[in-house]
Design a protein around this nucleic acid. Structure first.
Lengths: 247, 247
DNA sequence: CAAACTACTGGCATCCAGTGCCATAAAAGG
DNA sequence: CCTTTTATGGCACTGGATGCCAGTAGTTTG
């Protein structure tokens, strides 16, 4: 490491907004670099600031913790999601808004594939980071659940339904994202998410089917079972609740 | 606090198994007591060991971390769950095994209502503890998902299905547990869990219905929709997949 | 242009969780 | 009774995180 002038640093100071962003970025880059080479735990904050050439204290002015370097602007993203949901009108079906927002979250990851992949590797190897990611995923799930809860307010078992649907959407999102990350980003994640959501009954093919101009048709089904007719009707009701033009 | 003799402690040592358990319990009690009065963050490990009268180092021999005092024997419970699932035979429907295990987890919480309630309060107030609980909940979810994944292996979208069903069961479990804790434990949580699971389509009424000896019957349904017949059939297939005596 | 102001900085001290080490005392075992 | 095993507690140390403070650069104000 051929840098000779690191001892003659005197209280430098005052950066402009642009310099601030660059320093933050430099810290993040240096940190991720060191994490990748030395390992996360073996890398101290001291190491990071030394590599950049700033004081140890400064690091904690740019990142609340060492972990936060790996998940920068996570808070902003979450508030973005909150706003996105709140902006959705009352006429939009709740699950549609959630689905749309889930796609936006996916988009956030997809926007910076290299960073997402690096982070993915790190979170797989470092327990504390994995835990932290779990927590932040849960934050999204809570936001979804809260939104659905108030949208469902008044309907029977609104809380339960909101919780489970939020959990399902998040689980599906993560499933797709993980596959995409493992594959190195080789398929259309958006499309995969839509398909997967449809697969698990959170899908919104109603819109697509409707816009495809498919004509109405009558479906007649016959089945034999030991279960009661009410049970069957209940199940079907739930399974088909969001199809278009249903009677 | 009238305790005058805390400086004349010399390297005491060697407890028997019974004493060990009592010391562990004493540490936990003292800790939870201090957490409740001073707050979690304001309570140092030093405070805890002082209250009990042991060395600081000893604390970390009984608990890996300060947080672990709040979630004792969480690991054992998790391995218990793992074993429980692995013990289930191949003839048992996968979701039935998961459901059964989820009930066992619920039972663990219900077995010590006061402790669960104290912990519930703590986790609501202290962010770091809340995070830790989220992580441990996720561990259960992962175990469920892994079990379902291998049981579903070979079937289409096994991973996705496993992930979503695990998420749904866990979300349902937590919903019921939370309601139970908030209500102060005033209803039959087991029954509520079964109902809730049935509500969200993870229920197992197939078994009950079948054993009730209800006779077969033919259900004929008619519906009009713009969705394709395939879509409808798919949905119904999925919704009724576990009913008994189906044709 | 100089003074005052603001924003940022780095160093220091400090706190606290968590770990390795080791001498020691008590229990267990022969 | 002596040896081995086990638990203990003190101590030193690492490393993350925070509060405090004086110094410095850029900005604003008179």
């Amino acid at each position: 490491m051929p840098e000779g002038s690191s001892t003659d640093r005197k209280p430098r100071a005052a950066r402009t907004a642009g310099q601030r962003r660059r320093l933050r970025s430099a810290l993040a880059v240096a940190a991720l670099d060191l994490f990748a080479t030395k390992g996360y735990d073996a890398t101290t904050v001291e190491d990071i600031v030394e590599a950049v050439g700033v004081g140890r204290r400064t690091f904690f002015r740019y990142f609340r913790s060492k972990e936060e370097v790996v998940f920068p602007d996570h808070d902003e993203r979450l508030t973005e999601v909150v706003n996105d949901l709140e902006r959705s009108g009352a006429e939009e079906p709740p699950m549609r808004a959630v689905r749309r927002t889930a796609e936006r979250v996916l988009e956030m990851y997809l926007a910076e594939p290299e960073i997402s992949l690096k982070r993915f590797e790190l979170t797989r190897q470092v327990p504390s980071l994995r835990d932290r990611e779990i927590v932040s995923i849960d934050r999204y799930q809570r936001v979804f659940a809260r939104y659905l809860r108030q949208r469902y307010a008044g309907t029977p078992e609104a809380d339960l339904r909101a919780a489970v649907e939020a959990a399902s959407v998040v689980a599906t999102h993560n499933h797709v994202l993980r596959r995409w990350l493992k594959s190195g980003g080789t398929f259309d994640a958006h499309e995969a998410l839509r398909r997967a959501l449809a697969e698990v009954g959170m899908g919104g093919e109603s819109h697509q089917l409707g816009s495809e101009g498919e004509s109405d048709q009558v479906v007649v089904g016959v089945l034999r079972t030991r279960a009661s007719a009410e049970t069957v009707r209940d199940r079907i009701e739930r399974a088909l609740g969001d199809l278009p033009g249903r009677e």
